[in-house]
Design a protein around this nucleic acid. Sequence first.
DNA 1: TAGGATGTGTCTCAAAGTGTCTCAAAGTAA
DNA 2: TTACTTTGAGACACTTTGAGACACATCCTA
Lengths: 134, 134
Amino acid sequence: MIESDDFLGTTPIAIDDKGRFNVPSRIKSILDRKYNSDLIICVKENYLLISPHNEWIEGKKNWEKLDTFDDDDGKRKRMRKVLSRATECQMKSGKILIPANQRESVGLAKEAVLVGMSNTFEIWSREQWEKESG
Amino acid sequence: MIESDDFLGTTPIAIDDKGRFNVPSRIKSILDRKYNSDLIICVKENYLLISPHNEWIEGKKNWEKLDTFDDDDGKRKRMRKVLSRATECQMKSGKILIPANQRESVGLAKEAVLVGMSNTFEIWSREQWEKESG
DNA sequence: TAGGATGTGTCTCAAAGTGTCTCAAAGTAA
DNA sequence: TTACTTTGAGACACTTTGAGACACATCCTA
């Protein structure tokens, strides 16, 4: 099957009682084909940002250049905020487990939404997503 | 048969109980000849916009690059707006399936209208189309 | 070392998606 | 008109997907 290499679209997902969700088949097939099961989860303002590990490494090449003289109020501050709460994770048995503290950080309950963002994807609680998109 | 390379005209189509429609032969022959079966469906205000995947890739070349740490108000938000409303799909067995949530987004029931728009085409519910064109 | 919280593998069943056939209607050529 | 071809709606059986359930594993702390 010929498919695009981009994460796209909005898919409602259900988070189970252990904090996992089934990776939608469209997303899973892109991970299988273009990347692998290794992922990085970042906590952003009101959603979670999930990158394939390879994409993370790519991005890192850019922000690693940030030198020690950058002032503390700008980008460095934002980076610290994100990196300090980021974790590695893996897709296992077609599912992704979101650690409890990250779920709490963005108020993820059972009903959630996965939003494709080209080379990464985001997980929103349904409430937050309705605010964002509505 | 004289064949144009452009999607043109207005064709009534019937959406079946699973959410598929038969691609009108005029449209199908343009897809077969000039493009292929890979498509992108975008949810617009009150209709769906379907582009051949190639056309989408062309547009994508101009996109901004996203950064893990960028603010959520700027380019990320703009990009999310576009990407979250797009889904890729394929014409299969001469039919296109419109996912349930996209059908709901624009109120597509059984009676619909396909409108050619040169290098893309649109799907309207009959009611919306009558408002738009009438 | 027992018991809770967290994390993992696998199964089931309904819903979503897919391939193919039929038949009547529309279109086309002689 | 008549005979032949193409088209499109519907039917139907099959496959894939995803939510939920459940049993088991691991880790931590008391």
